[in-house]
């Protein structure tokens, strides 16, 4: 018998050994997985590094997304703020610190400039620069309070103001929708305030929650808004209110005095959706910006956010 033939025969007769070998490899893989958990010390080192470098306007993002609860726990409430955890979108941040394990990354940063990368054991902190960053002039969400905004509902009898109140937050279990915040405008059954909405991919967004229960439009006046080139924003509905795609559209229109800035419409199934209107004519000026939200449908658990820049 020739050498190669002999080797083939030998291999065939010992092919069964693949079975215990696979068992052994699987055991090794299991042990590696169990022992491969990121230690607390790596998280702590990464946190200290980010804490020293991050400015308030920077984004801190944890990758993969499933590790976000651990990231929030380890980094604490000062670093993992609601603004960072539930942004309208990432375009408003000049810089991002991506805190990642397992080599995972946020796709949003693919077009950003990678500035720095530091390794803390199993945790990698990558600093990205936003190439298209333009500073925010006014953030409508942050300005929604009794001092900087006014809310009213409009019906056939005219416009009725909603009062700025502070009460207990309203929450529930699964299916409740966005929490009604403690600080809110109230008129009749309508409560308008800053909340966090889950979009159709269950990504959180901090936004102005305007639950519409009928055909009565809600009007929000933002006082002393500083205008730039554009009014940029996003809007959507609570996932369970839009995912069956049976609800009526919700529209939001912006105006300053008599000047119409723009109108965006959100249809069920569009999830968290962006809009942008030019405000070049108003650039450098300050003024009251009016947002009017309306829909003909019921259970329109609508939320929007916008900035000027």
């Amino acid at each position: 018998m020739q050498g190669p033939e002999k080797a083939t025969k030998w291999l065939k007769s010992w092919a069964f050994a693949a079975v215990p070998l696979v068992g052994l490899v699987e055991l090794g893989a299991h042990v590696a997985e169990v022992r491969g958990v990121t230690p607390d010390s790596d998280w702590t080192a990464a946190r200290d590094s980010v804490k020293a470098a991050a400015r308030p306007e920077d984004l801190i993002a944890f990758a993969p997304r499933w590790v976000d609860p651990v990231g929030r726990e380890k980094f604490g409430r000062e670093l993992a703020t609601i603004e960072r955890e539930a942004p309208g979108d990432v375009s408003r941040f000049p810089r991002a610190f991506e805190v990642s394990i397992r080599g995972k990354h946020w796709p949003e940063f693919e077009t950003w400039k990678r500035d720095d990368e530091k390794h803390f054991g199993a945790v990698t902190v990558t600093t990205f620069e936003n190439p298209g960053y333009r500073p925010t002039l006014t953030d409508l969400v942050s300005n929604l309070d009794g001092e900087h905004a006014a809310v009213s509902h409009v019906d056939a009898s005219g416009e009725a103001a909603c009062a700025w109140n502070i009460g207990a937050p309203l929450t529930g279990n699964l299916g409740f929708g966005p929490a009604i915040p403690s600080h809110r405008f109230e008129c009749g059954g309508t409560r308008v305030g800053v909340s966090v909405v889950a979009d159709m991919d269950y990504v959180p967004h901090r936004c102005i929650y305007v639950p519409l229960s009928g055909s009565t439009p809600i009007r929000i006046t933002f006082k002393d808004v500083t205008f730039g080139d554009v009014l940029h924003g996003n809007h959507g509905l609570y996932v369970e209110a839009e995912r069956m795609r049976t609800g009526a559209p919700v529209s939001i229109s912006f105006s300053v005095g008599e000047e119409h800035i723009g109108r965006a419409e959100h249809r069920d199934g569009e999830s968290w959706k962006g809009f942008e209107f030019s405000t070049g004519d108003l650039k450098g000026q300050k003024g009251d910006l009016v947002a009017e939200i309306s829909s003909s449908g019921s259970r329109r658990m609508y939320c929007f956010e916008a900035i000027t820049r």
Binding site: V34, E73, G177, V196
Partner: peptide, 30 residues
């Protein structure tokens, strides 16, 4: 669970912060 994220969101608004005091994990998975 993925669809339970909305409950996290509610808690953030009600409690005013996003940081759990404790996260129970198995092999690092919450």
């Amino acid at each position: 669970e993925l669809h339970m994220n909305e409950v996290d969101d509610q808690i953030w608004v009600a409690y005013g912060h996003t940081s759990p005091a404790y996260v129970l994990t198995q092999d690092g998975v919450p």
